[in-house]
Amino acid sequence: MLTPAPPGSRAGNRATAERWSELLRQSGHEVQVVTHYEGEACDAFFALHAWRSHDAIQTFRKCWPETPLILALTGTDIYRHQTEYPLPTRASMAAADVLIGLHSLVGEDIPEPFTEKLLTLYQSADANSPEGDATSRSEAFEVCVIGHLRKEKDSLRAAKAARRLPDESTVHVLCAGKPHDRHWQSMLELEVRENPRFEWLGELDKADTRALMARCQLMVISSVMEGGANVVSEACRAGLAILASDIPGNRGLLGEDYEGYFPVGDEASLADALRRAETDPSFLKRLSSQVEALAPLFTPEKERRALEQALALAIQRRAGLKG
């Protein structure tokens, strides 16, 4: 299983690779997670990220033309690299026997010839409610933003929206994640200095992230593009209400009828939604009920079955090509 994210990284691709490897081991498979591939033999090859894994995929297909290949498509693959780097991205998609999409609308955003290879897999989260005691919440209306700070995530949009709130609002934005580069570090430091409604918690481990979710009344996912964020699964399993940018990667997880969308990059609309969630208990309750209803989609058992289905389809299709 190939991922571009190195061991110890808290990047989504690494977390996905490690979770998938464990789920496949539970089914009796032997799995090795690698960041580089140089032609080693295997019975099946999983690659995460079409563009970044292009060279490895071409090496694999050249060395082992009869071995099944499963490719997981990321948000940047689907919504950026298909346009910016179409040849390597689509060459990887063409080489795969099965394409894994992480939300239900991926098929609308990839070339039609590839849709027959597509299998939708919903990333899972633990069944237990987040660690922490909700009764220990502060008097503030606490809102979490979880994920690395980078352009694709539009990570400071909630903080900017909070600046627009009236003085009587108690909204406090808690941000957990690592800045992508010096530019994001500088923007983060400026926000910390100038915005009394904003607090940066740094990069958190899994337990602290779950505790943060238990502490908060609401989560904001403001991404410009998403392949299907695992943090959505975690929030749904925890019953934590979400305000989400209106993009395919969020609609493909939360559904077309979800009430908590706001236009991408529109901090005025997000500020209105934050204020409504803070002051209208019925609205917040409806959002919580909607995510709770979605929680059964995101169980480890369903994710493991989807991985097994992807593997079986890849074996079947590669055998068909040999025949």
Rank of each mutant, 00 (worst) to 15 (best):
M1R: 03
A5P: 09
R10Q: 14
R14C: 05
A15T: 15
E18Q: 13
R19K: 09
L23Q: 03
E30L: 09
H36S: 13
C42V: 13
C42R: 12
D43F: 04
F45S: 05
F46Y: 12
A47Y: 02
A50M: 03
W51M: 14
W51R: 15
D55V: 05
Q58K: 11
K62E: 15
P68G: 11
T74L: 14
T76F: 05
D77C: 15
E84A: 00
P86W: 06
L87Y: 07
P88H: 03
A96M: 14
D97G: 12
L102T: 10
L105P: 02
V106E: 00
I110E: 06
P113F: 03
L118V: 05
L121A: 01
P130A: 00
E131L: 06
A134F: 13
A134R: 10
S136I: 01
A140S: 10
C144L: 01
L149G: 06
R150L: 09
S155W: 00
K160S: 04
A161T: 03
E168T: 13
R182C: 08
R182V: 09
R182N: 10
Q185T: 14
R193K: 15
R197W: 06
G202Q: 06
A207E: 15
R210H: 10
M213K: 07
A214Y: 13
Q217C: 11
M219K: 08
N230V: 06
V231Y: 01
S233K: 02
C236H: 02
A244F: 00
N250D: 14
L253F: 08
G255N: 05
E256M: 13
Y258K: 12
G260I: 06
E267G: 13
E267D: 15
A268F: 11
L270A: 09
R275W: 02
P281W: 00
S282T: 09
S282Q: 10
R286Q: 13
A293E: 10
L297K: 15
K302P: 12
E308A: 10
L313N: 00
A314Y: 00
A314P: 01
L321Y: 05
L321M: 07
K322Y: 08
